[in-house]
Amino acid sequence: MTRTGRRPGNPGTREAILTAARDAFSRQGYAGASVRRIAAAAGVDPALVHHYFGTKDELFTAALELPFTPAKVLPQVIAGDPDGIGERLLRTFLGIWDGPGGQQGLAALRTMLARDAEVGLFREFLISQVLRRAVEEYGLPDAAVRVPLAASQLIGVVLVRYVLRLEPLAGASVDWIVATVGPTIQRYLTGELPAPGPAD
């Protein structure tokens, strides 16, 4: 991923930092991972991490190899009242994959899902950096239940539309998908839900 205004640096050093970052974010989550510990695992000074990647958020994005940052996604989701969060969330999410960097994002997603060690990266991005932040922004109750349910719909739509390419989702307009699936995500996030029962 090209980052204007920042020298590429030594490829070996950059990769060592990214490897350490992927491991840290997967194991400890975004909040638990620190730039200092990532730098120590990579055998470099923390200042070098900031020099190559900028902020912790930018390092997380580089580790994911996604063409967008959580900081750019979240404002679009919370830019209104909670009654429309399901529609905004789905429309924003589809806009990412339909956008100019969508193919790069899908390639990164396929790679992460194929490697057990990196599944946690995508989970951390979607759950902690987007959904949980949005739920906390609105003060919605029962986040531990609502967030995974909403994630199941978002991930399902992305996999069916862009990876499996099953109709009618593969060829449908964003408006149709939002109108069809958005209300379900809205109910998961703001509607009444039964208490989750124990697994069989």
Rank of each mutant, 00 (worst) to 15 (best):
R91D: 13
L159A: 06
P196R: 15
D23S: 15
A62C: 09
R133F: 08
A170N: 06
G171F: 02
G156R: 02
A150G: 10
P11T: 08
L48A: 13
Y188I: 00
W97D: 07
V178I: 03
L189M: 11
T92D: 05
T184W: 03
R123V: 13
I38N: 07
L109H: 05
P183N: 10
T180S: 15
A41C: 04
S173C: 00
N10T: 05
R161S: 02
F60S: 08
L106V: 11
E58H: 08
E167I: 00
L66Y: 14
L18T: 04
I96A: 01
M1S: 10
A134M: 09
H50Y: 12
D116S: 15
Q153S: 14
M112H: 15
L131I: 09
M1T: 12
G102A: 08
V158E: 01
R161L: 02
L18E: 06
D98Y: 10
A62L: 02
H50P: 00
L74R: 10
L48C: 01
R115W: 04
A21G: 07
R115S: 12
A20H: 09
G5R: 10
D175V: 06
P168I: 03
A134W: 01
L113A: 14
A33P: 04
G9C: 08
P100H: 11
G54T: 07
G54L: 09
G171L: 02
A195C: 00
G102P: 09
E87K: 13
L164K: 05
E118R: 14
P194W: 08
T2F: 14
G101V: 12
S173Q: 08
R133S: 11
M112L: 15
Q186K: 03
A117C: 10
P100W: 04
P8W: 01
P82I: 07
L90E: 07
H50D: 05
